[in-house]
Every structure is written in structure tokens, then in C-alpha cells.
Nucleic acid binder design. Structure first.
Lengths: 177, 177
DNA sequence: ATATTACATGTAAGAAATAACATGTCAAGA
DNA sequence: TCTTGACATGTTATTTCTTACATGTAATAT
């Protein structure tokens, strides 16, 4: 039974305490969505799979038929081994960058509009990250790693917003021979 | 017959001239792989699908059973409409950032080693981009959009390399109360 | 009372992606 | 001649992801 990134991500979350599927889904919606998106229709079956593999187990049943899951000793070993014995493989699927390659198919004003839109989106995301980062600190063991991840997000969004501004300026600039 | 990002990407490439499946595959390997990865086992069936939809057509058959494809008028209309009438949706799948959230499960030296590894990888990628960017120019209509995309890549890789260095420094720094 | 919203968990169908299997051509060098 | 490597195109099985369908509970506001 092979566990992928989503499975290990769920295991990782459960190392910091028990959760229901619903709570895990919400954690994806609010913070994890920026690095790895997943909807409840993926999460519930994955939890069932992890349970079948003995990596998590059900603890108490809550109010509205909610099921609380806790990580098992085997599960903790699995997530640790994933972290220390394998290397991350990022395979990019960045539609917004794909489009850049084909902007020549659009009239120049539409190409410029594309970058303006990108600049806006990245600036807004940067702003959201900044607000969130205010609640985190590398000195707080609770929020330390979120803060480190946010730092990457903020730097990347700032870089992308700057890039979009650069692109707009470059497109306006008369060609230098 | 709905065309996804991969299909539109292939159409986009074919707007700049006829290609074989093999040539398209290589273009993914060398440059496009940085924004959208695809292997030949995805590309060949997708080409068949695009042909069935009348968006591309076979032209000459080359040496080793190679098939050359050209975009049709319908195909060009399709890729233009994709560019102008839809917005990009980037859903992140960044395993390397996922892992950051769980570095607390590893001993501190292994966490630091993770960032050192990330710094190395991003620096190396930046270097590769720089080499490639030397062959491109925004003033050259042939390489203009590659150059713009590369600019984003270089800024992001630089930001990520800096981030990794920052993270290492932060982890070494004694906590400020 | 009733309606709405948030809580809570699933399944099913289809699309997309990965890894593996499978086959064959042509050129260059040993 | 033979072998290696680059060229060239497919299929199959599996996993992963998205979208939509489907159901029901508890709290709050009207």
C-alpha cells in the first residue's frame, strides 16, 4: 500500500493531534491550499485508505456522525521515513506561466492586460500572506514552520508581482537595437 | 470534446510551425518542463484527440514512421479563445513546500540540511535559467515570450534560494523574547 | 415553527497524469 | 557484421484529481 503526498500530508497534520475529516478539509481550504490543494472528496477516501493500512485509527465519534482520527505509531514512523528517506519531486503545472509563451497570439493590449491581471493577483496574495504572517513567528514552536513556509510564499509573490510590472514596462519600452 | 491545458499548450506550440510528436516531446523535456511537465505517453494520445477534434491535421510522414502535425484554422481559433476568454487556474502541488510544514518531526540538523538542499537546487536552477536567458531577448520576436517567462523563473528561483538561506540563518539564530 | 447556514461524510463518473510495457527504424562506430 | 544509442510511436494499468451527486445533523436567526 503506497502512500503519496496527500496521504503523508494528512499523516503530518495528524502528528499534531487528532482531527476529523471535516477539520482536515478546512485546514486545506485555509492554509494548505497554497501549497497542495485537496477537496473533501479526495480526503475522505484517503483517510479510509490510511486507516486500512493501519497508519491512523478512529478514536471517538463526535456529534454529527463525525469521526475523529489519530495517527498510530506505524503512521508516525511512515511520515518520518517519508521526510527523511525520500526527496521532494515538484512537477510544475503552472497554467499562468504556460500562457505567457503564447501571448504573441493576442493583440499587444491584451498581452499587457494579462500582466496587469497577474500583478494584481500576486499583490493581493502577498497581502493575504502578510496578514497571516503577523500571527506567526519562527520563535513560536506552534507556528514556526508555517512562518517559514509563509516567508517563501511572500518572497515568491513579491517576486512575481515585480516580474509582472517589469513585463509591462518591457512591452512598452521601444526596442533597443 | 473539451481541451485542457495540455491540449492548448500543444496547439500553442503548433502555431509556430509543424512538429512531430517526438519534437513536441523534446520541447517539453528541455524548456516547457519548467512550467508544465508532460511525457510522450500523454502527448501522443492528446495529439490523436486534437486530430479527431479537427484542431490539428497530419501533414507529411517523415523517416522513422514520424508523423508531422499542423494546426488547423479551427485549432488556431480554439487556442486564441482559450487565451482570451478563459483565465488561468493554478492549483499548487508543491511537495517541497508541503514538507516544510512538517520539518519539526525531524532533528534540527536534518531540517537545516533540507534547506541547504533546497538552496542548492534553486541556485542551480537559477544558473541554468541564466544560461538559457542569454540566448533570448524581449526585442527578438522569436524568443521574446521565452525571455519573459525566464525572467519570472529567474526571479522566483533567486527568491527561493534567498529564502532557504534566510531559513538556515533563522534556525541558527537564538530566539528573541 | 421555519428557514438558513455551517457542520459532516460519503460515492460515482470522468479526466488527467504516471509508470511500465511494447515495438520498430536508422545512423555511427567498433 | 554487430551493437549501441538516438529516433519514433504507440498501449495498458494504475493512481490521482476534479466535478457532481447524494444525504443527513445541529445551531441560529427570523
Amino acid at each position: 500500500m503506497k502512500i503519496g503526498v496527500l496521504g503523508n500530508l494528512l499523516l503530518g497534520l495528524l502528528t499534531s493531534g487528532e482531527r476529523t475529516g471535516y477539520e482536515l478539509t478546512r485546514e486545506f481550504d485555509v492554509s494548505l491550499a497554497n501549497v497542495w490543494a485537496a477537496s473533501h472528496s479526495q480526503i475522505y477516501p484517503e483517510l479510509a485508505k490510511l486507516e486500512a493500512a493501519g497508519l491512523i485509527r478512529k478514536t471517538a465519534a463526535g456529534p454529527r456522525g463525525s469521526q475523529r482520527y489519530a495517527i498510530t505509531v506505524t503512521g508516525e514512523a511512515a511520515v518520518r521515513s517519508w521526510l527523511s528517506e525520500t526527496s521532494p519531486v515538484d512537477s510544475p503545472r503552472t497554467e499562468s506561466m504556460v500562457r505567457v509563451f503564447f501571448l504573441g497570439l493576442l493583440p499587444p493590449d491584451q498581452a499587457a492586460a494579462y500582466f496587469a491581471d497577474q500583478q494584481k493577483k500576486h499583490s493581493e496574495k502577498l497581502e493575504r500572506y502578510r496578514v497571516y504572517a503577523a500571527h506567526c513567528s519562527v520563535d513560536d514552536p506552534e507556528t514556526r514552520w508555517s512562518r517559514v513556509a509563509l516567508e517563501a510564499g511572500m518572497r515568491v509573490e513579491a517576486a512575481m508581482a515585480d516580474w509582472a510590472a517589469w513585463a509591462i514596462a518591457e512591452l512598452e519600452r521601444p526596442a533597443t537595437p
